[in-house]
Design a protein around this nucleic acid. Structure first.
Lengths: 336, 336
DNA sequence: TTGTAGGCGTTATCAA
DNA sequence: TTGATAACGCCTACAA
């Protein structure tokens, strides 16, 4: 392995100068810098990151914490997108990203085996986390923590979140603008922060337009089957609206399937707007109009923010809200 | 930060002894070991992994290389599962996992920005990789490389793969055992190694049972829409078999949807077996019978194997084949 | 503008 | 069985 010393010797400067030169210090003349760099390249020199981290007393390492249940059971593509954004952005820095699974309510006690987490400059938590685990983390680790897509929970902790409220609001308004006056809601319980946010956004849009809430179902989980069950239940109520907003695409897809299997036409009989924009959403029939959440962006913004915090030069808000946008496809019909 | 020196002082042993004790060396008496360990715990000592790696002249770091196109465009849950398996298994070791994206046919030249990859003990490549990139990787990096789910491509490089051939064979036999004699095939081109393997497995099962190939379509991509198009094309042929094997679930799902939309019943008119077992597969109507690929296992086995190779104590085959299993659901009908 | 020297926290090699 | 002491490769005062 070629090391800094080799480069220094070839370039006939001292170790210190070589180091400074490669780190672009202004203490070194451009001429020497150039010479040193050329030799570094010629010798194919790459610094040993461990020696560097040791000397700098910084780990340049960030840990992504993920609830292993969510990851493995209800796993969906959105983790992949967020993680992708994080990694991609990290590549532009000298920070490195590691992963750590935790179990629900085990308090995330750090076992000696997971001791890697002790040498981290910062922590990113993906998705919802229980208070217990979060508190333990804060107690055990003395580094900044940022919550990604935690739906604005835990107000006093740094976070980057999708604008759930705004998304629901936008989607509902979209339907209203299409002329719909009887709009239904299919979502998850209010106990989940996403549930609350979306519900408030939905209601706000209705209220602003003096519309009544005609039909809502808030007992879904996150999957397709759950959407199907919801619609099944609603069909028995016999008070179907002309359009539905669903808090996520899978629920919408399930609901649409159920409806289709009962002979209804989408969007001719009933319109749908979902939220997420999953891969699947554009592939179903009809392709689903939805609110596209910028997952990759969540990850990118998240790690940038965390790095700023680590380096004590973050000056923005505690919670960063990432906006989203309607993607028009063919699941909505204008009835104006 | 509490360091080894602190532990050593408290336990009144030298630095060297403390280190040996914590690393469970047999040069140290059990009594001292115990004392040192107790103090380590009491002081909440965790070794600095960077100092350790530096001193050991090993990085204990493994890089997962991913084609960024596949990751972001055709991304699906199976990456997540493999990665999950890798990380989970890595947690049981002192190895750490990093990620690196590469672009198609750019030769994966290592830019100074991506120099982290230079301090890796080994590389895992996910999915198909082009020869160009692979060769550059081998040239630039002098560490073991293992290909995960590369479908047995590049015979002379370590790999862990799903048994595509066996899966297709098993699925086809399953249909045959159900009494089907006219079995169709929907898949991808032979230029893709998965295409070849599956096709051979399918043909072998037919041949063993003296059945003719009645209907095949091999021009799919990987998505649902592609399956739908395939079925659309086949419907025009008007020589529909009584059952189909599809090389992946999304294709099967698309094909089924198309069929249903044309008034056919699944499985009453036509049976289907897919391959993968995606989240979605159990949620559609009818739930899809498929070949479950043990993605998580691929990751776990892969990293274990790589670590063995790194430590020069791997003794198995170059390619490890992970078996798979039929998951019976409701998309097949017995016609015997 | 450059060089000297000490330190980062471990591990490893010798002696004792 | 233990203890000094020298690596590991890099960074950074401080001195020149």
């Amino acid at each position: 392995m070629v090391k800094l010393k080799d480069v220094a010797e070839k370039a006939s400067v001292s170790l210190a100068t070589a180091s400074l030169a490669l780190n672009d210090s202004k203490l070194v003349s451009n001429k020497t810098k150039k010479r040193v760099r050329e030799w570094a390249e010629k010798l194919n020199y790459y610094p040993n990151i461990y020696a560097r981290r040791l000397a700098k007393r910084k780990s340049y390492n960030i840990c992504i914490m993920i609830n292993s249940k969510y990851f493995f059971k209800t796993s969906n593509i959105y983790y992949l997108r967020i993680i992708g954004g994080i990694i991609k952005e990290a590549e532009a820095t000298e920070y490195t990203v590691s992963f750590c699974f935790y179990e629900d309510n085990k308090g995330a006690k750090i076992s000696r085996e997971k001791s890697n987490i002790k040498s981290m400059d910062g922590i990113m938590v993906l998705d919802i986390i229980d208070e217990n685990t979060l508190n333990n983390l804060r107690k055990e680790l003395d580094v900044p923590i940022i919550l990604i897509d935690n739906h604005k929970n835990f107000k006093d902790i740094y976070g980057v979140d999708n604008d759930d409220f705004g998304g629901a609001y936008k989607a509902t308004r979209y339907l209203i603008n299409l002329g719909h006056k009887n709009i239904g809601y299919i979502g998850i319980p209010d106990s989940h922060p996403l549930g609350r946010e979306s519900w408030y956004g939905f209601k706000k849009a209705l209220k602003e337009n003096n519309l009544e809430e005609v039909c809502s179902y808030k007992k879904c989980q996150f999957g397709i089957r759950s959407g199907r069950r919801a619609m099944n239940y609603l069909l028995e109520e016999k008070v179907l609206p002309t359009a539905f907003f669903c808090v996520n695409d899978y629920i919408a897809i399930g609901a649409i399937e159920e409806l289709k299997s009962k002979g209804y036409k989408v969007p001719d009989n009933i319109s749908f707007v979902g939220m997420d924009d999953m891969e699947l959403s554009s592939e179903i029939d009809p392709p689903l109009t939805t609110v596209r959440i910028k997952m990759e962006e969540l990850g990118r913004v998240g790690i940038k923010k965390l790095i700023s915090i680590i380096n004590n030069n973050y000056e923005g808000e505690i919670k960063t809200i990432i906006d989203n946008e309607i993607v028009e496809r063919q699941s909505c019909k204008s009835i104006s």
